[in-house]
Simulated scan of single mutants.
Amino acid sequence: MLVRLRALLKFLIALDPAREISELTAADLQNYGASLPNHQQYFLRHVRSLLMEWAKTGVAGLSRDLMLLLPSLETKSHAIGAAVLTMDPERGPLTDLEYESVLAGLRQAFASGDMPIYDYALVVLAIALGCRAMQLAMMKVKDLSITERADGSKVYVLQVTRLKQGKNIRPRTLFKARELAPVVGALLEQQIGLVTKWAEKNGLIPIEAPLFPATMKALKSRRVMHPGLEGHHDGSSASSKIAKLLNGLRIVSVRTGKKMNLFQTRIRRTFGSRAAAEGLPATVIADLMDHSWLDSSLIYVEARPEIMERIDKAMALKVAPLAQAFSGTLVR
């Protein structure tokens, strides 16, 4: 809301640099709304919410005509899932062919030595879990547990911190356990070996060290976030790093004929779309993607028409015996 209010004030100053803004008026808000492109009209909704809270305080700065306008001002909501629903070639989910191209490029970069293991592990985990960049940034060595089955095979379980679960919830207080594929778990086990050496060199307790440090050479004070998260990336730097690594693969899209624009949110959207394509219900997708609202997950189920055929096939095995039983046919 603060960002949106600042945007409003910057807009007004650009209109009239000589103006001293001592009071906001209805015309100010209407002009700002008219200046916004269609896909950003929801910005006005945030400004309206803040100004209504301002008006309740009784503090000066809002004109009478503005206060009368606010309750009846019509605003648009943010269009949820537009990139997913339209399969946007620049921001939407990757097609199966694009996805396989990214994986092939990633494997090739690692096999040829162009991508070190700590970068490779970060990108592989980002793709495997489809989580947010901030969640990757907050992971610690101690979040990965490794146990052995009776046959000697290993089980890897990663505790992923939950985000966007409500107000006043501190980072790393809520977790969701995610079992990893053995090949991904083994990769993280190698990564932990490198991080342990880095932590000892930089005076950190190894189990408290970040799983993906902000640097493999030395701590940077500008990367420090909350107490206990020394050496971690912040969400922005983790997102930038993943985007840089993915775009460095220089994968060409079959849809556009150009180098793909890749970033973690797009990988996350691909994760959700692929889960829906496998016939998983919205409730399971919400659990996998750590969504607070089911509406965010329903987008993926509704996104692709061909998903329905796959869902039908997945459901047929469960529904067919029930249908036969109701029609009088004896089934096992």
Results as ranks from 00 to 15, higher is better:
Val3Met: 14
Val3Lys: 15
Lys10His: 15
Leu12Cys: 14
Ile13Arg: 15
Ile13Gln: 15
Ile13Ser: 13
Ile13Phe: 13
Leu15Gly: 10
Pro17Lys: 15
Arg19Val: 14
Leu24Gln: 13
Ala27Ile: 12
Asp28Pro: 10
Leu29Arg: 10
Gln30Asp: 10
Gly33Pro: 11
Ala34Asn: 15
Asn38Ala: 15
His39Ala: 15
His39Asn: 15
Leu44Pro: 03
Val47Arg: 11
Ser49Asn: 08
Ser49His: 10
Met52Asn: 04
Trp54Ser: 11
Trp54Met: 12
Thr57Gln: 12
Gly61Pro: 09
Gly61Tyr: 09
Met67Trp: 01
Leu68Gly: 12
Leu69Tyr: 10
Leu73Asp: 06
Leu73Asn: 08
Lys76Tyr: 03
Ser77Thr: 08
Gly81Leu: 03
Asp88Cys: 06
Pro93Gly: 09
Leu97Asn: 10
Ser101Lys: 12
Ala104Met: 08
Ala104Thr: 11
Gly105Leu: 08
Leu106Met: 06
Leu106Asn: 03
Arg107Gln: 15
Ala109His: 05
Ser112Asp: 14
Met115Arg: 10
Tyr118Cys: 08
Ala121Thr: 03
Ala133Glu: 05
Leu136Ser: 06
Met138Trp: 07
Met138Asn: 09
Lys140Asp: 11
Lys142Ser: 10
Ile146Ala: 04
Ile146Glu: 09
Glu148Asp: 07
Arg149Met: 12
Asp151Ser: 04
Asp151Tyr: 04
Lys154Asn: 07
Val155Arg: 14
Tyr156Glu: 01
Thr161Ser: 14
Lys164Asp: 02
Gln165Ile: 01
Arg170Tyr: 03
Thr173Tyr: 00
Thr173Trp: 00
Ala177Leu: 13
Ala177Asn: 12
Leu180Cys: 02
Val184Leu: 07
Val184Trp: 02
Val184Met: 09
Ala186Met: 04
Glu189Leu: 07
Gly193Lys: 03
Pro206Lys: 10
Pro210Glu: 07
Pro210Val: 09
Leu211Tyr: 05
Leu211Asn: 00
Met216Gln: 01
Arg222Ser: 09
Val224Gln: 09
Val224Thr: 04
Pro227His: 02
Leu229Asp: 06
Gly231Lys: 05
His232Thr: 01
His233Pro: 00
Gly235Ser: 06
Lys244Cys: 04
Gly248Ile: 02
Leu249Asp: 03
Leu249Ile: 06
Arg250Lys: 13
Arg250Thr: 07
Arg250Pro: 00
Ile251Arg: 04
Ile251Cys: 03
Val252Ile: 13
Val252Arg: 10
Leu262Trp: 04
Leu262Ile: 03
Phe263Ile: 06
Phe263His: 15
Gln264Lys: 05
Arg266Val: 00
Arg269Tyr: 05
Arg274Ile: 01
Gly279Pro: 04
Leu280Gly: 00
Leu280Phe: 13
Pro281Leu: 08
Pro281Cys: 11
Met289Asn: 07
Asp290Met: 12
Ser297Trp: 05
Leu298Ser: 03
Val301Cys: 09
Arg304Cys: 06
Pro305Gln: 12
Glu306Pro: 08
Met308Glu: 15
Leu317Pro: 00
Ala320Pro: 00
Ala320His: 06
Leu322Tyr: 11
Leu330Gly: 02
